[in-house]
Design a protein around this nucleic acid. Structure first.
Lengths: 206, 206
DNA sequence: CGAAACTGCAACTGTCGAGTTGGATTTGAT
DNA sequence: ATCAAATCCAACTCGACAGTTGCAGTTTCG
């Protein structure tokens, strides 16, 4: 078997993703990550430098995946609804990123690593929303996306709220129900954004 | 000066609220809480038993306050909009509870302390929504509340998202803008819930 | 006054965990 | 075969932190 440094790196990243997602930057244990990956703890420092840097690497990696996994297809409010539903489905199947983002927000605030690249991602998404909803401006598209992403991430970050307000969120039926609800919410908000845009354009055009 | 055990307890609770909100159950330091409160660390164990128990006490205390602070006044979709706006205003002024709930959700999941009392709070809120929006059933009211609470809490829990999508969320104008947006979202969703309820009642009535 | 409870203070214990180090072993390339 | 890089292993350092203890001063209340 060849020296497969990419494999070692990948194993560490996968184990770290699970560990950081479950316990956060403070609760995560470097030893557990190493054991879980079946790799020596010392390797982590060779590859990533520090626990914090590993956390950043994990987030950057996960973020790259979700963007590719869940595109906005089609156009019109329904397309936004489908996007929201797909995003929720994805976060149920892979809750890691939502939780990681929450840990990051709580611990680091807005001072995040790799801000530039992430900002580019967000601009792209905003542009994609605008492509699907012609006439909607940056601000409206940004708020719409913020609302959708907050609701999807929040579903797995505040599980108590779901359990209290709509019954245990781990139940498959609850997942499905919430997915329908979120899709409907996204559609309604997208329709509103389009209507606002039309009204604004009519006002300025007259 | 008389022995004021309530004051000692209150000082500890206040300091613990700030510390846990800022750093979470894992990141919080018992020594810092004691120093901040101007009370000896040992007192914490006399009064609350353990770091974990102190965390639970902090959440229970904060939760009691918010329910009293932000009621639903009036009726109709606009009342729900006002409620959402007031909730966001409150979380900007006192971000502690939102962050505590997030820490709790991330670390403890749905297995929370004092579940019964909290469940009662939630039932009350759902009933209050139904009082403001006649005809709306439990499920719809629950989803509406879940959406509103997730969006308000998320605003301070995912500060990066706000910064990326709508500009730095710490700016006062951004706060105000998001507040208007959230109010509008809540109104739209409340209107939709009412319309759904009317349609359902018409269908069953015919 | 005197016992009992409350508090402050400071040092202590024991554990846990991040990061390091040195040496042995394996592997691919030349 | 040989060398350099990648890996494993195990023990180690060092600091941090939760929780404890003993003691001395203070307040309350009988």
């Amino acid at each position: 078997m060849a020296w497969d440094t990419e494999r070692t790196r990948r194993l560490l990243l996968e184990a770290a993703t699970a560990e950081f997602s479950a316990h956060g930057p403070d609760g995560a244990r470097v030893d557990r990550i190493a054991t879980q990956a079946g790799v020596n703890k010392e390797r982590i420092y060779q590859y990533f430098g520090s626990k914090d840097a590993l956390f950043d690497a994990v987030i950057a990696h996960e973020l790259g995946e979700v963007t590719a996994d869940v595109p906005i297809v089609g156009s019109g409010p329904d397309a936004i609804g489908e996007y929201a539903a797909a995003l929720l489905e994805r976060i149920v199947a892979r809750p890691e990123l939502g939780r990681l983002i929450a840990w990051e927000g709580l611990v680091r605030g807005t001072e995040i690593e790799g801000r530039d690249e992430r900002w580019r991602h967000c601009r792209d998404k905003i542009a994609a929303v605008q492509a699907a909803l012609p006439g909607v401006d940056d601000r409206q598209a940004g708020h719409l996306l913020l609302t959708i992403v907050t609701l999807t991430d929040g579903w797995r970050v505040f599980p108590q709220l779901g359990a209290m307000f709509v019954g245990d969120g781990a139940r498959p039926e609850a997942q499905e129900e919430r997915r329908r609800e979120l899709r409907a919410v996204a559609v309604v908000l997208a329709e509103r954004a389009v209507a606002d845009a039309a009204a604004a354009s009519a006002a300025s055009g007259s």
